[in-house]
Design a protein around this nucleic acid. Structure first.
Length: 409
DNA sequence: GATCCACAGGAAATAGTGGCTT
DNA sequence: AAGCCACTATTTCCTGTGGATC
């Protein structure tokens, strides 16, 4: 067995590359920061805060910018005795209704141990609890709702919160909302009354360009890696891939980190472009695997049915061909199969996640129109992931055997 | 241009879970 | 314990659609 030792030729301090690392300055977002700063100016004067709406894709600095600027704001506010600024940050990651957002918001405002249940109340009662809580805290309360686009069209909270004071629901508190959205279209989906009240100030964070990403990566790489641990082409390559793909600093950093890990695991003296390519491949595979893992058992069975056909050379497949195969697998596994309509939903979901390819076909008179599906990921990946899910392995579908037989061909 | 098929996918009803208040 | 409430996954029912053929 290989021994553990600290003589690392690659990393100096890899924490700098981790997702949760907070830089103490943000690179390449000067205009946005200026706008942000101006929008928060009323807070320091003790006035009712403006509502701010940030939008831009993931990994373009919205959350980091918010954390940095609100820290600064709280520091500066401490200089004034008559100012009391509270910041409450809530990730609306898995909250898909106003109700859920309010319930979780209350729980993060409440002292530990006094949390309430996140279901069971009617909406009005819940809002009343929130108003009481805000008044108990008092002063300026800035509420950051990150990934707020998750709540979809149910935007009651976004309507009520900014007007709580005007409507007399709260008297001691001055609430302000900072909404952060990954989805540009979210703003358009909001009801008109919300658009009015929420969007006093809007700041758009554009995707990073390759040059900006290089700057960001170099800044971190200097701290994270040993001197000369990176081949010259590595940073530009990571930046280039990320810029073309998403413009996301998160993706660029993840790629650089993974490339470093690959190199370190191989005991390579330096991180090279080949390591970056390999890292890119690994990350893509992981991403697909994570998506698949999160699906329900039925979706797994449906995917297994497609894999089975694929192995036997039968893709692309139309829905009506997949259904019996899925039913059979479900029966073998002792599970009641879903109705066709429901399987359609699962197929669309798989297509949405790019696990399956979906093509619309229309053969016209007497033939009708339908969808055709085929596997959009390598079979081995699909089989590996499915086999790695305990629940699926227990069902003993025998995918592995099928795949191996396929290899033999 | 009308027709017609095979399906996609919308809408509403239902089942089931967890948790509230009285 | 009974009666609500929110929410998710599912079933049931049904309307809408694209394009080759008539």
């Amino acid at each position: 067995m290989k021994s553990f030792d600290r003589a690392d030729t690659i990393f100096r301090n890899e924490d700098v590359l981790r997702e949760d690392w907070r830089p103490d300055a943000i690179i390449g977002r000067d205009d946005e920061m200026t706008k942000y700063h101006d929008a928060l100016q009323p807070v320091i004067r003790g006035a009712q805060p403006l509502n701010i709406f940030l939008y831009g894709k993931t990994g373009v600095g919205k959350t980091v910018a918010t954390e940095l600027i609100l820290d600064q704001l709280q520091d500066d506010a401490a200089d004034y005795d008559d100012l009391d600024v509270t910041v409450e940050y809530l990730r609306c990651n898995s909250l898909n209704s106003s109700y859920q957002v309010v319930a979780h918001l209350i729980n993060s405002l409440k002292p530990d141990g006094e949390e309430i249940a996140t279901t069971g109340y009617d909406q009005q009662t819940l809002f009343n609890i929130l108003w009481d809580e805000l008044d108990r805290i008092g002063g300026t309360v800035l509420i950051v709702l990150d990934e707020i686009d998750n709540i979809g069209t149910d935007d009651d909270i976004l309507y009520e919160l900014p007007r709580a004071r005007a409507n007399g629901y709260v008297t001691a508190a001055k609430p302000g909302v900072i909404g952060i959205s990954n989805d540009f279209k979210f703003r358009d989906r909001l009801s008109p009354k919300v658009k009015d009240s929420l969007c006093d100030e809007e700041i758009e964070f554009p995707p990073y360009g390759a040059d900006q990403l290089i700057e960001i990566l170099e800044d971190r790489a200097g701290q994270a890696f040993q001197d000369d641990a990176l081949d010259d082409g590595v940073v530009p390559l990571c930046a280039g891939i990320a810029a073309r793909d998403s413009g996301s600093a998160r993706q660029a950093l993840r790629l650089l980190y993974q490339a470093g890990t690959v190199a370190a695991n191989q005991d390579a003296p330096q991180v090279t472009e080949a390591h970056v390519r390999e890292a890119e491949d690994q990350l893509q595979r992981e991403e697909i695997a994570d998506k698949i893992r999160d699906l329900t058992t039925h979706a797994h069975l449906i995917l297994a049915a497609v894999v089975k056909h694929h192995v036997q050379g039968g893709t692309p497949l139309r829905t009506r061909e997949i259904y019996p195969a899925y039913q059979e697998l479900a029966h073998e596994a002792g599970i009641d199969p879903l109705v066709l309509r429901r399987m359609r939903d699962h197929l669309s979901e798989l297509a949405l996640y790019s696990v399956l390819d979906r093509r619309k076909r229309n053969d016209g008179y007497n033939k009708g129109s339908y969808h055709e599906f085929s596997l959009a990921i390598p079979v081995e990946t699909a089989v590996d992931v499915l086999e790695s899910i305990t629940r699926v392995r227990e069902l003993e579908i025998g995918l592995r055997g099928l795949a191996e037989r396929n290899d033999a061909l």
